[in-house]
Nucleic acid binder design. Structure first.
Lengths: 217, 217
DNA sequence: CTAACTACATGCAAGTCTGTATGTATGTGG
DNA sequence: CCACATACATACAGACTTGCATGTAGTTAG
């Protein structure tokens, strides 16, 4: 008899067990990156956080590099997923420009981006890690662009839309990495408000939405 | 008898010796951060790179944290120094806006910013390090603002100038951290060209320079 | 000139991390 | 039901790292 998917825990198929612990380990790795930084992301700690023994970890990821590589991929799909969810909520928004901007900001909040930042920086010193990042980063950005253009057809036509999104992402990332640990949420919010205003102004110029009477033209 | 400042090496005053090795160690720390990342910045490696024994290192910096804290301060003054040098070269520039932008970009090239980025990210997981960063970061930005306003008096008056500089810095930092190790210098250059164009457009809007002489200057 | 102090060197102890080797349990195909 | 494979656990070895304790050379003060 087939034990059925998701039967309590008495008997799971090998593949289920395997997938479950792999997921546990990958999530723990992300958690570790966020809480202890790349330097503090050790196999011991990851196993502990995942609630599995170090032996299990080694079984699935023979070397630490294997685990981190897998984490890169894991994070990439997680980011794409988060972005997609946010984008869906904005479908058919009346004023897509500010909406897209806020969406971008929200996408970069939370642990997923923090872990990614750790990997970006660490990749500079680790060639194989850099290769992994290089391979999966376009996937995230590509997905985001794809959906953005699908959801904002009015803007999608404009050739500058893509560039504007890139610049917006760069601003957000610059703010977040140079902020000391988000120690002061107020300061962070103020920085974003300033940048947001600038990005909206830029959008007006780029997309020719200044219309007949916005500023002296 | 005074042995004279900078006498070869036969006899240096204690203070000279001390300062020299401290400088050596701090520079080696920065070098280590750039080449091996925060995780790879170990006291052993730093001492080796500095060309001194590990004993000398612990003599000057009893704990690793002490050394890193000192490195934060060291990097801060180094960055201020670099910025100042670049700014001086731009004194009385005819077209200060693009000049300031290029200056900012150049200031963020090189090892100084890379090391700083390592510390920013690492500070998220290390409370004492975060405190240090929090203390010396305003110094750098403050110095840069101060000199910028002194050198570009025309712009300094405009209340948006300061904000625009901040946004520009954020863009630059976002580009640099999210670039995988500068593997492809072309891509990096393209990203900067795009952002630069956007920032110039933004400046036109902010500073009301769209007027009759937008292109002719 | 000597005593004391500072700068530096060497060696060691304790801890941690990674990778491996070997043992055990739990599914799985015949 | 049985051989086998896969998932996981435990134990250990080697290579780090950090911090300390002790020893030595060079410098300064009286």
């Amino acid at each position: 008899m087939s034990p059925g998917v998701g039967s309590a825990k008495g008997s799971r198929t090998q593949e289920e067990r395997s997938a479950a612990t792999r997921q546990l380990l990958l999530d723990a790795t992300v958690d570790c990156l966020v809480r202890y930084g790349y330097a503090g992301t050790t196999t011991t700690r990851i196993a502990e956080l995942a609630g599995v023994t170090r032996g299990a970890l080694v079984h699935h990821f023979p070397s630490r590099a294997d685990l981190v590589s897998a984490a890169v991929r894991h994070l990439a799909s997680k980011r794409a997923e988060v972005a997609f969810a946010r984008l869906e909520a904005l479908r058919g928004s009346a004023d897509p420009i500010p909406a897209a901007l806020d969406m971008l900001w929200e996408v970069h909040q939370g642990s997923v981006f923090l872990a990614t930042a750790e990997l970006w920086v660490a990749a500079r010193a680790d060639a194989t890690l850099a290769e992994q990042v290089d391979r999966f980063e376009p996937m995230v950005t590509g997905t985001l662009m794809e959906f953005s253009r699908a959801l904002f057809p009015v803007l999608a036509g404009h050739p500058e839309f893509r560039h504007w999104l890139y610049t917006s992402m760069d601003v957000i990332r610059g703010i977040l990495v140079s902020d000391p640990a988000g120690h002061e949420p107020d300061r962070l919010a103020r920085r974003w408000q300033r940048a947001r205003r600038h990005l909206l102004l830029l959008a007006e110029v780029l997309f020719d939405r200044v219309g007949p009477a916005s500023a002296t033209r």
